[in-house]
């Protein structure tokens, strides 16, 4: 590598620093609002000039159902993302390894169906679940199971495509030699393929989890009673028009606490994420 430091390295650091500043400004703002003793939006500035306090935290846990929302969100998003990844891994395996009638058309239809924004069908889903709730109250409105089922409806979509691309990169010889050794298709899938695709499983799982955690419209239709809400529904309600200013500090505490699991998993999976996201797409 020739040339002076400025042209090879300097611009890299400049871009990096600017991008980091861009990324961090809103987050620093959230942190200082969360620690702001006044707890209002109007009194918050970028850096915490009013001092530090944990009042917003106690207020959040004491005055709202935040703990319950947190639990609901972890259970709903956790269950739904694990189940959804399992379902799409199964489907991706079938599309990648078997040749059957209707394969091409199924793959293309999956892509098309996925483009119908599910929330445009919200009226239809509402009507379906009104009926469902009458027969099976355990699946109706204000239940975890009903919402999870709705999320699973979309499980086969994008994730299957992403995973199929990745499965395609695994050499077929692997399957063939395993078959020679007497392995069944189930053994090949669970013992050979799945362990090899851990990166893509990790990344799609994380993407699904983030997506479901942030999902707001379906959840707001489904979960109306306060103790059943998810974080997205509960926190958004906290800064609704009339108490937008006053509860901003609490809201920011909630935002930071919501981010903890995702940021944690992100740090943990960093290496997988970069390979996982592009592996399937690039090598296809």
């Amino acid at each position: 590598m020739r040339g002076n430091w400025l042209t090879t390295m300097g611009w890299r650091h400049a871009v990096g620093l600017l991008a980091v500043a861009f990324s961090l400004i809103p987050i620093v703002f959230v942190v200082s609002s969360a620690l702001n003793p006044l707890g209002t939006l109007s009194s918050t500035s970028l850096l915490p000039v009013h001092g530090f306090t944990l009042d917003n935290v106690t207020e959040l846990f004491g005055g709202t159902d935040f703990g319950q929302w947190y639990l609901n969100t972890l259970v709903i998003a956790g269950t739904a993302s694990v189940a959804s990844i399992f379902i799409s891994a199964l489907a991706a395996y079938a599309f990648s390894r078997f040749r059957f009638r209707g394969r091409r058309i199924s793959l293309l239809s999956l892509l098309l169906i996925q483009m119908f924004p599910q929330f445009l069908a919200i009226v239809a889903i509402f009507l379906i679940f009104t009926q469902v709730g009458e027969y099976w109250p355990a699946l109706g409105f204000n239940t975890w199971t009903g919402l999870i089922l709705v999320y699973l409806g979309g499980a086969m979509g994008v994730n299957t495509w992403l995973m199929k691309g990745f499965f395609d990169t695994l050499p077929k010889e692997l399957d063939e030699s395993a078959t020679m050794d007497g392995a069944s298709h189930g053994q090949i899938f669970f013992r050979i393929i799945l362990p090899l695709v851990t990166p893509i499983i990790a990344i799609t799982g994380l993407l699904a989890f983030i997506g479901m955690m942030n999902e707001f419209i379906m959840a707001s239709v489904f979960l109306t009673s306060s103790s059943d809400k998810t974080l997205a529904v509960g926190l958004t309600g906290m800064v609704a028009a009339n108490n937008r200013d006053a509860q901003f500090g609490m809201f920011c505490v909630g935002t930071l606490l919501t981010a903890i699991p995702t940021v944690g998993v992100f740090m943990f999976l960093q290496r997988y994420i970069v390979h996982g996201l592009t592996g399937g797409a690039v090598k296809g």
């Binding site: 990096g16 991008a19 980091v20 990324s23 961090l24 809103p26 987050i27 703002f29 959230v30 983030i210 955690m213 942030n214 707001f216 974080l231 997205a232 926190l235 958004t236 800064v239 809201f251 920011c252 909630g254 935002t255 919501t258 981010a259 995702t262 940021v263 992100f266 740090m267 960093q270």
Partner: peptide, 18 residues
């Protein structure tokens, strides 16, 4: 890298409101 991807890890609905 970690600092740059932080926005992606924050809850988007909440950050939109922020």
């Amino acid at each position: 890298r970690v600092l740059m991807v932080l926005p992606y890890a924050m809850p988007s609905f909440a950050m939109l409101l922020v």
